[in-house]
Simulated scan of single mutants.
Amino acid sequence: MTIKDVSKKFDLSQDTLRYYERIGLIPTVNRSKSGIRDYTEEDCRWVEFIKCMRISGLPIEVLIEYVTLFQQGDTTVKARKELLIEQRRHLKEKMEDMKKTLARLDHKIEGYEQIVTPKESKLKKNKK
């Protein structure tokens, strides 16, 4: 699969894919004889994983560490698991903060609805 195809499939720019490969977020992608990147299904799974983790807010540095550990083999399974557990904990904390923020926004909007809606109703009545 070409970089153009992968870019479309995962809605990431080609520059982002090249960057992810350059910094080690995606293991080195094989190239055709003409030098064009040739993404395998395994490469695409990495792209999908990294995109998901980035959307969730995991730092690039943590993901680079994870990929590096993965490439070192089975001796790093425990370290990889611990890294993911720690990131899961951070994500849960972030989600709780976001829930609180959402509740606060809902409360504020509700307050404005009580102010705005009666005024809008009066304006509509006056136009009739």
Score class of each variant (00 low, 15 high):
D5R: 15
K9V: 04
E41Y: 12
R45C: 06
K125S: 11
V47R: 03
I115K: 09
T16H: 03
R18E: 00
E110Q: 10
E82V: 06
I109K: 09
E86T: 15
T75F: 05
K81T: 14
D15I: 05
V47H: 04
Y20W: 12
Q14D: 07
I23S: 01
R45S: 11
E21A: 03
H90E: 10
Q71A: 06
M53G: 04
K33E: 15
D11S: 15
G57N: 09
Y112F: 13
I60L: 04
R18K: 06
E120C: 11
I50L: 00
E48D: 12
D43W: 01
T28L: 07
T16F: 00
V67G: 01
T101C: 06
T2S: 14
K128F: 06
T40P: 05
W46P: 00
Q14N: 11
S34G: 09
G73C: 07
R37Q: 08
E65M: 03
K99L: 09
T75C: 12
Y66S: 01
K127N: 10
Q71G: 15
E21N: 04
T117W: 07
L102E: 15
K122C: 08
L25M: 03
T28G: 04
C52Y: 07
E96Y: 07
D43V: 02
G24W: 01
V29L: 05
Q87G: 04
K94W: 06
R104G: 13
V77P: 02
E110Y: 08
L123Q: 11
I36Y: 15
K81Q: 13
L91A: 10
L69V: 02
T28H: 06
Y19P: 00
E113N: 14
L25G: 01
K78D: 13
V62R: 05
K119D: 06
R37G: 05
R22S: 15
G24Q: 00
S34Q: 11
L58P: 02
K33M: 10
